[in-house]
Amino acid sequence: MITMKRVRKTYPNGVQALNGMNIHIDKGEFVYVVGPSGAGKTTFIKLMIRELKPSEGLIQINGNNLGDLSDKQIPYLRRKIGVVFQDFKLFTKLSVYENIAFALEVIEEEPEQIKTKVMDVLDIVGLKSKARFNTSELSGGEKQRIAIARAIVNQPAILIADEPTGNLDPETAWSIMGTLEEINNRGTTIVMATHNSHIVNTLKKRVIAIENGKVVRDEVGGSYGYQA
């Protein structure tokens, strides 16, 4: 499902963010990506959605070699990958409903389908009652759930989350984890970069630790392994 071989990423300013990454993640897995700040977790995620191009190496997503994709094909790659960010990245001027519907308008979904699908994902994240709210009226946890709802509304095979609980209090963070777990149970592969040692050590999953742009540890059911 996700494969990286000898991937390097050097930023224009000379920083070597990834330094020979090798990773393989199978369909249906739930993977934590951990590591100190600046280790390269976000860079790793940006490479998967082709927000960045690798300086070297091979990246395969859903059987597509990203190096072979033209600029025109990138939008179609992104439609098969849901992404969630620490800062939510919602359209602040739009309602909850409109935010989610946007991801469907982009793929030119039928209007009747849009309504059904938006309400379905709102049900999954437990915010059906807030469809008409403006996103600015939501709490942080609610915003993140809307972002998750938007990310999964196209039924992507992969959901990538970059520190999705980073801005949330512990209780809210746990409820988000519940939602992700449920999405994973429906068969979606989940890759989640996180700093949250409590979550990693409690809800046991495969843990990939990155340091200095390299995988230094990879164990199923592993622990966080850093000072919180």
Binding site: I49, E51, K72, P75, Y76, L77, R78, R79, V83, K89, L90, F91, F102, A103, V106, I107, R150, N154
Partner: peptide
């Protein structure tokens, strides 16, 4: 700018 970035990240084409 942020909106355009979000659009692109959820898979909007340039022409869209």
């Amino acid at each position: 700018k942020d909106e355009i970035q979000i659009m692109k990240l959820v898979g909007a084409t340039n022409s869209f």
